[in-house]
Simulated assay, not measured.
Amino acid sequence: MFSIPAVTWTLTAVLLLSGSYHFMAAARAHRLTDRVNNGLHALMTVLMAAMLWNLAPSTMLVQIAVLGAAALWFVIQAVARPEFKLLCAGSQGRLKCVYHSLTMAAAAVMVAMMGHVTTGSHGTAPMDGMSMSGMSMGHDHHAMAAAAQSTVAVTSSHSPGLAILLTVFFGTAAVIFMILLLRFRAAKTAHRHHGTPRRTFGADHGLEAIGAAVMALMFATMVA
């Protein structure tokens, strides 16, 4: 995805470290929903890391289905009735689940967009290299190649606008989570003698900021 190997390796390391954190959080969690939620986040980070290297493109539909189901799962949690205490509770928890559902849906969109790019860059090449005898067969070949190229062009013509929108969205989200992290640290310092806030909140804000920044960078590469 990125032309600079150092950037690709750095983002891969960040994603895998984030995935490891969510995996360990899932293993330590006592509630089933926390295990599922952290497990889904760990899976999403692994899939995003795979996208950086264009790995397993043949499983694109499976990846989209899994990420779409994960997005639906977070939506269900966000709109669940208050008596279901195991799901998202309170306005802050529901807002967090809404954001996570958008993140999962955006990851599914990214997989689909990467799949179209892969198809566009590799799908017509074998056809161009084939040697065919007969003018009619050659005409059919060029017609099929032109149709494939036009299909990819139509698909990608709508991608830049969506990529820009998602880049701005996740870039804004990264800034918001960084502000929340700084506010958390300030509150922790100010109330050190009156009770320390839970550390997990700060870690969560930091992870969300990093994840949003990575999503923004990956979508930014799809703008052109």
Rank of each mutant, 00 (worst) to 15 (best):
L67E: 05
V14M: 14
L67N: 03
W53H: 13
V14E: 13
W73S: 15
T45G: 00
N54H: 13
L55N: 09
Y21E: 06
M60K: 15
R31V: 00
R31I: 00
M51C: 06
A71N: 01
A56L: 11
A65Y: 05
D34K: 13
N37W: 03
S18D: 14
L40H: 04
L67P: 07
F23W: 14
M51K: 06
A71H: 09
H30D: 09
T59F: 10
H41G: 04
L17S: 12
S58T: 15
G19E: 01
L47N: 00
L15D: 01
L72N: 11
A70Y: 01
W73N: 12
R35N: 10
H30K: 15
R31T: 03
H22G: 00
N38F: 08
V14L: 14
W53C: 03
A27F: 08
A25Q: 09
L72P: 04
A65S: 13
V62K: 08
L47V: 11
V36H: 09
G19Y: 02
V75W: 07
H41M: 12
N54G: 09
R31G: 00
M48A: 04
M60A: 15
L55I: 12
W53Q: 11
L40P: 00
H22S: 11
A27D: 04
P57R: 10
R28C: 05
L17C: 12
A25E: 04
L43W: 02
W73V: 07
F74I: 03
A56C: 10
V62G: 03
M44T: 06
D34P: 05
T59E: 08
T33F: 14
W73G: 08
L32S: 10
Y21I: 15
M24I: 12
A50W: 08
R35V: 04
Q63F: 02
Q63L: 01
V62D: 14
M24W: 08
L52T: 05
M48W: 01
T59M: 10
L61R: 15
A71D: 06
L55M: 08
T33Y: 05
P57W: 11
I76N: 01
N38D: 07
I64F: 05
M51E: 14
A71V: 04
T59K: 09
R35A: 08
H22F: 13
T59W: 06
V66T: 12
V66M: 07
A71T: 01
V75P: 00
Q63G: 01
A56W: 14
L40E: 01
L32Y: 11
M48G: 05
